[in-house]
Structure formats: structure tokens, C-alpha cells
Amino acid sequence: MRPSSLTPSVALTTPISGYVKSVSINPGQFVNPQDVLVEVVDRTGLHLELKVFEKDIARVQKGQRVLFKIPNSGVAQEQEAEVFLVGQAFDDDARTVRVHAHLHKPSGMLPGQYVAAHIQTAGARHRTLPEEAVIQAGEVSYIFARQGRGASGYRFRRYKVQTGPAQDGDVTITPLEALPDTTQLVRRGAYFLEAELSKGQDE
């Protein structure tokens, strides 16, 4: 005799709204009260969890701006977040500290995705240029600036600079000559200009 309490389906409700991340059961499967049936993710609380190395954690604090990208997402523009919590414990294996940041506009993100992030600390400001804009020449390097337009085309001037660390295709520069902030610096094609300058000197 079939018990009258059995029903072909049961409505399941969740205390939060969100998206189903995973389903751990199959139709007709017997489950116990303690079994996890479905995992639901609430994206309204989505935030970044970053791992910062021990040597850098002293410069990280609440309120700092975070710029990040999602690798292989096809979106070149960086997104923004803000640090709201700095962990107080080290991961003994990786020697890192967890840092959490609120997203300004969570666009196209999914829980568990990896991001490439930079935390803007209160460091000194430096001028930077793409690496292809700098002619490396030992301790002293060169950059070019557009000076105006002449009868035969644009005129350029070469400036001596000292370069610093490079990161993500950009390199910091310290001018060794007076260089006003309004100077129009060449951002690409520096090696072409250097070749033209050398050719003119040879001729």
C-alpha cells in the first residue's frame, strides 16, 4: 500500500535571493535532512578578496582605491573597488594577508573568479611612459617630445631621463632636464625617431 504522505514534487525555498551555483542531487535520489541540495549565491554581497604579500601589507589600509581586471574577460578597462577590511592573520604557507574590497560597479563578475589587482597606496607620484616610448641607453635614457609643426612636418626634441621600475608595459621616468607638465611626449615610435635622428647626423 502506497503511503498517502508521498508527493511527486516538493517546493524548496531559500532565505536569500540569488543564483544557483551548483545542484548536488539527481531526480529520484534519497536525501537526508543534513544533505546540501543546492548552493545559492547572493551577488548583492559580492566583493574582492585579495592576497597581499607580507612585505607589502604595512602600506595597505582601509579606504584605499583598488584597480583590477578580470583576465581573459575581453574587457580592457580597469574596474574600481575600495578596501574595507585588512586581515590580521598571515597565511603561513604563502606568507600573505587577506584584504577585502567593496566593488564600485560589479560588472560581469562571477563568484570565485580570479582578478589581477593593484592597490593604490600613499606612495610618491611618478611620471610614466610606455616602454616603447623610451630609448634605453645605459644609465641615461631618452624620450621624445613634440615641439610644434614646421614647413616639412612636426619637429621633435630628445630629452634625457633616468628610468625606474617597469610594470604592465609602463616605465617610470625622472627627467634630467627641465620638462614642463604641458610638454607633448611621444608615447610610441621612439625608436623610429631615434633612427631618423641618427640617419640625419650621419648625412
Rank of each mutant, 00 (worst) to 15 (best):
E82Y: 06
G45I: 01
A94T: 15
A89Q: 15
A58G: 07
D42Q: 08
V66P: 08
V83L: 03
R59S: 15
A89G: 04
F53L: 09
H102Q: 07
H47L: 03
N72Y: 14
I70A: 09
P71T: 04
A58Q: 13
V97S: 03
L48H: 04
S107P: 00
G45M: 00
N72S: 12
F68M: 13
H100L: 13
Q61R: 15
M109K: 00
K55L: 07
K62F: 11
V97G: 01
S107E: 10
Q79F: 04
Q64W: 11
G108F: 00
S107K: 08
Q61D: 13
V97C: 01
R98W: 01
G74P: 06
L50S: 07
S73Y: 04
S73R: 01
G108Y: 01
V86N: 05
V66R: 06
L46V: 11
L50K: 08
A58N: 11
E80T: 11
V99E: 01
E54H: 11
D56K: 07
G63F: 01
Q77I: 15
H104Y: 10
Q61T: 15
K51A: 15
V66D: 07
D93F: 12
P111T: 05
T44H: 13
E54G: 05
V60S: 08
E49L: 13
D93P: 01
F90Y: 15
G74K: 04
M109P: 00
V66L: 07
P106I: 12
L50N: 05
A76G: 14
L48C: 06
F84I: 02
Q88C: 03
A76L: 11
E80K: 13
A58K: 14
G45K: 09
H102F: 09
T96Y: 02
V86L: 09
L48I: 00
V52G: 10
L110C: 00
S73E: 01
R98Q: 09
R43M: 15
A94H: 07
L110A: 04
A81D: 03
H47D: 11
E54A: 10
D56L: 02
R98A: 14
V83W: 03
T44Y: 07
V83K: 02
G45C: 02
F68A: 13
A58M: 12
L46Y: 12
E82S: 02
Q64A: 10
G74D: 07
E80L: 13
T96R: 05
D56C: 05
E54C: 08
K105H: 11
K51W: 08
D93H: 09
L67W: 07
Q77C: 05
Q79M: 14
E78K: 08
Q88N: 15
R95Q: 13
L110Q: 06
H100G: 00
P111F: 02
G112C: 03
H100N: 10
F84W: 05
V66W: 06
L110K: 09
D92G: 10
L85E: 15
F90E: 04
V83H: 05
G87Q: 01
D42I: 00
I57K: 03
R59H: 11
R95M: 12
Q88I: 06
V97M: 05
F84P: 04
V75N: 13
